[in-house]
């Protein structure tokens, strides 16, 4: 605290501007290295990034993990138990087969791509919308802020799953993948917009922003060069956590019968289809659910550890 007053007093004295710059840049370097330090020393961060790295490899190169085509379903080999050889296809079914005779393991491997892509696209789209609107509202204030905040309130008042159900009713015949991405993005951007707005409002009152304004920098340049880069760090953590929310929401929509359909290889669709065989073959429900939960958990852990690392209040303790 005392250090801050010290710097502020110095800032009033123009002769000492250089000293202040040196002081603050030295501080920001150490803050960044402290963030990295606390990240690599957090076991949760290490474990979750390793799992996500593995998932990424699975999603990009599913062929490395299984030779079986997940959409090739042989009804003669339906509902095989774990670890049996198919008599007809001569292929080994590690996790057995589904009620239609598709290889369960292959479906889980190929389903990773769908889940990660849905989560990724929705995260990028909704975070971008949220950041842009939140930054405009927080930085310019006034009537723009009122309008954007009211629009955010309206969308925030519609719970994610319920709004998605209503919109997906309208998009019944659209492409199953993109309609889910679009829907979740439309109803998912509000929390990042709110967070960005308050973060920008906090950042724009900082002394370094006041000083560049005093030096005559353009308003928009200040926004893009100084305010947004400094305000965005809490958003990154929330974006990671929100990816797990979207991945789970996607499968919940499949379960309700309004999301993706059987034309897509996806964990959510498999979980929805496994309901009917819950008693006779609970594994079909369990395996994709475990995959889904591990993925969601990893994003949650990643976001949480980033959140802890960038928050200086928590780091101090």
């Amino acid at each position: 605290m005392e250090n801050k007053h010290f710097v502020a007093d110095f800032a009033n004295n123009l002769d000492e501007v250089d000293a202040v710059t040196i002081h603050s840049s030295a501080k920001s370097v150490s803050a960044f290295s402290k963030t990295i330090y606390s990240l690599v020393h957090n076991p949760l961060f290490i474990v979750s990034s390793l799992i996500l790295f593995l998932l990424l490899i699975i999603a990009v190169f599913p062929g490395l993990f299984t030779q079986i085509d997940p959409t090739r379903c042989v009804i003669r080999e339906a509902s095989l138990p774990i670890g049996t050889n198919g008599e007809y296809t001569k292929s080994f079914h590690l996790l057995g087969t589904t009620g239609l005779g598709c290889d369960e393991f292959a479906r889980i491997i190929y389903g990773a791509r769908t889940s990660l892509l849905v989560g990724f696209f929705v995260m990028v789209i909704s975070t971008s919308i949220g950041c842009v609107l939140g930054a405009i509202a927080g930085y310019f204030g006034g009537i723009l802020d009122s309008i954007i905040s009211r629009i955010t309130d309206v969308f925030f008042a519609i719970p994610l799953i319920l709004g998605a159900v209503a919109l997906l009713q309208l998009l019944k015949d659209a492409d199953p993948f993109w309609k889910v991405v679009l829907t979740l993005s439309i109803f998912g951007w509000t929390s990042s917009a709110r967070l960005m707005r308050s973060s920008v409002m906090e950042t724009k009152t900082q002394e370094y922003v006041t000083s560049v304004r005093a030096l005559g920098m353009e308003k928009l340049t200040i926004l893009f060069k100084h305010v947004i880069p400094n305000a965005i760090s809490p958003i990154i953590a929330i974006a990671m956590i929100s990816m797990s929310v979207y991945i789970v929401a996607d499968s919940a929509l499949s379960f309700l019968g309004v999301g993706m359909n059987s034309s897509v290889v996806s964990w959510g669709v498999d979980i929805a289809n496994a309901q009917t065989t819950l008693q006779s073959n609970p594994g079909l429900l369990l395996y994709p659910s475990i995959a889904l939960a591990i993925t969601a958990l990893s994003f949650m852990f990643l976001g949480d550890s980033i959140n802890d690392a960038i928050d200086p209040k928590k780091r101090r303790r």
């Binding site: 379960f255 979980i271 819950l278 429900l285 939960a293 949650m300 852990f301």
Partner: peptide, 25 residues
């Protein structure tokens, strides 16, 4: 802290089915 994160990331309907199967049936 770890347990709560695990609970948050398990989808409601998965938990519902599993509990229905294990505790109910």
């Amino acid at each position: 802290l770890v347990i709560t994160l695990i609970l948050i990331s398990i989808p409601t309907f998965v938990l519902g089915f599993v509990c229905q199967l294990v505790f109910g049936m």
